[in-house]
Design a protein around this nucleic acid. Structure first.
Length: 516
DNA sequence: GGACGGTGAAACTTCAGGTTGCCTC
DNA sequence: GAAGTTTCACCGTCC
């Protein structure tokens, strides 16, 4: 094996390698196994780098302004970027991630410390990939990552347009580990690829989709179809496959998502080839692309909700207890008590029966309550910094959770519409709007105006402007004071008041309003 | 004597990521 | 498994 010596400045191999990359005028990606570690490593490297670059200062500023109020995470990132170093993980908002990626491509940022986010999807080649640790915490404690993932990460090194080759370096902590890593990753074969169809939620979803789309119309067609998939090829056991499909079909029928014209599926001996089709609900569930089990769970919750008192938390907890929203926030030692308090407080509003403490589902249940509570705080107008401090949810993760929650709420509004639960539907639609903007109910009228989000709406409300009527009546000068000139003008225009002359400076000038 | 603050060791806690829907309240 | 955080015992100082 060829060897190469790199000066040890810090006593930390990954840091030394990163600093060396800068010294030779190249760029590198440092892959680490946790978000915290990505941030720490980036910070450590940036402290050792001295750069004065106007572009970096501008970029650092942009990163800081990505949210309405910078979080600690934003500030930390901005400090690193000042020195041409960044961290990159799912906790960053997409705008920040794009800024980092683009500026790395342009060579402005020299080092990115990242979790495996960077290894997938986008192409961000560097001269050097530094893999700090190939172990990661998983369901069975610390374990070595798959060879496939190693290949993904090391494959980031070497950009054809600039370099003839690239370097991928794995850091080993001992001679023993070096040998182990060499055998497993350099000499080893990548793992087999497994069919995702074998996972029940996926099979349920596709089975219903195929029926709803009229792609298959009978049990025979279904079995023929799945018999030709990679799943069947890998499974090599048609009998078992047929058994699983039959089980799924009878579940889908029990949940009233599909109907069969003749006999029951459950009677395996008499399986016939009657026409299978989706019910109205089944068709919609398939279009919404949610797991039929989730849809069935929603339907039972909504039925329960139709004759009891509900509030925002009822729905938030319901959507937080689905496969789709996973991973849930975990209830830790410190917040167990406060989550229990919430459970007691909202007990009468919950749409699902609380499992017993001794049941294995209980852990998931409390986690769903904690997750729901985070959403609840968001619609109570708590900001990203608060959620980061109190739920350890970073802005990027918050946004992605919110997108899923929005989708699930939309699915619920559709389901409640089909079930003709008008009152529930109204509440869900309202909640969806609130969740999207993170506002209390009182701000909803203002949020409809383009250019008005949670912050500006709250400002307006605080100043006594509570709805469109108030916006129309308020003096333009005051509105400019609250919102700034550009936004104020746009807001006035939206409520049908075109402003021809704009008051100058701090003094109020003549304002001419043309009403439509 | 007791309140207070500093210190370091021990105990404890936490840990990666991504696609789907619709356009409107 | 390792790094970061919290807890706690211990000690010295000051009033």
């Amino acid at each position: 094996m060829p060897t190469k010596n790199i000066s040890s400045e810090t006593g930390n191999a990954a840091l030394d390698l990163a600093l060396d990359t800068i010294k030779i005028g190249k760029q590198s990606l440092v892959f680490v196994n946790t978000k915290r570690s990505a941030e720490k490593t980036a910070e450590d490297i940036s402290k050792k780098v001295k750069t004065e670059n106007k572009k970096l200062i501008g970029l650092s500023n942009d990163v800081l302004k990505a949210l309405s109020r910078p979080t600690k995470q934003c500030e930390r990132l901005a400090r690193c970027i000042n020195n041409g170093v960044a961290f990159h993980h799912a906790g960053l908002v997409s705008k920040q991630r794009e800024l980092i990626e683009d500026n790395f491509r342009e060579g402005v940022i020299k080092i990115i410390c990242a979790t495996p986010t960077l290894a997938y999807g986008l192409s961000l080649p560097a001269f050097r990939s530094i893999l700090k640790d190939l172990r990661r915490y998983g369901p069975r404690g610390m374990a070595y990552i798959p060879v496939l993932e190693y290949l993904q990460m090391s494959g980031r090194a070497g950009r054809p347009e600039y370099d003839k080759f690239g370097e991928s370096i794995v850091v080993a902590v001992s001679k023993n580990e070096k040998k182990k890593l060499y055998e497993k990753y350099i000499l080893g074969e990548p793992e087999e690829i497994n069919s995702k169809l074998a996972v029940e939620p996926v099979l349920r979803t596709y089975l219903l989709s195929l029926i709803a789309a009229n792609f298959v119309n009978s049990r025979k067609e279904i079995i023929d179809f799945f018999g030709k998939t990679f799943w069947a090829f890998q499974f090599m056991d048609m009998e078992r496959l047929v058994f699983i499909i039959d089980k799924m079909l009878s579940l889908l029928e029990e949940w009233e998502f599909i109907m069969q014209e003749k006999e029951d599926f459950s009677d395996a001996d008499k399986l016939n080839d009657g026409k299978i089709r989706a019910t109205i609900m089944g068709k919609r569930v398939a279009e919404l692309y949610i797991d039929p089990l989730t849809a069935y769970f929603f339907i039972s919750c909504l039925r329960k909700g139709s004759d009891k008192k509900v509030n925002e938390f009822s729905f938030l907890q319901m959507i937080s207890h689905t496969l789709e929203i996973r991973p849930l926030l975990r209830v830790g030692v410190k917040d167990r008590e406060s989550v229990q308090e919430k459970l007691v407080e909202f007990d009468s509003f919950l749409l699902e029966k609380e499992p017993s403490i001794y049941e294995p589902e209980y852990e998931d249940y409390v986690n769903s309550v904690k997750t729901a509570f985070m959403f609840y705080e968001w619609i109570d107008e708590k900001d990203e910094e608060y959620l980061l401090e109190n739920f350890n949810t970073r802005p990027g993760e918050l946004r992605s959770k919110m997108a899923i929650a929005d989708w699930l709420l939309y699915a619920n509004s559709e389901i409640s519409r089909i079930l003709n639960f008008r009152d529930l539907n109204k509440e869900i639609v309202k909640l969806r709007f609130r969740l999207k903007y993170g506002v209390k109910e009182e701000l909803l009228p203002l949020i409809k105006i383009k250019g008005i989000g949670r912050v500006r709406a709250r400002k307006l409300h605080y100043n006594g402007i509570r709805d469109i009527k108030d916006v129309k009546n308020v003096d333009l000068g005051k509105l400019i004071q609250i919102l700034g000139k550009q936004v104020a003008l746009s807001v006035k225009k939206q409520v049908g008041q075109e402003i021809k002359e704009v008051p100058n400076g701090k003094r109020k000038g003549q304002v001419s309003l043309r009403k439509y």
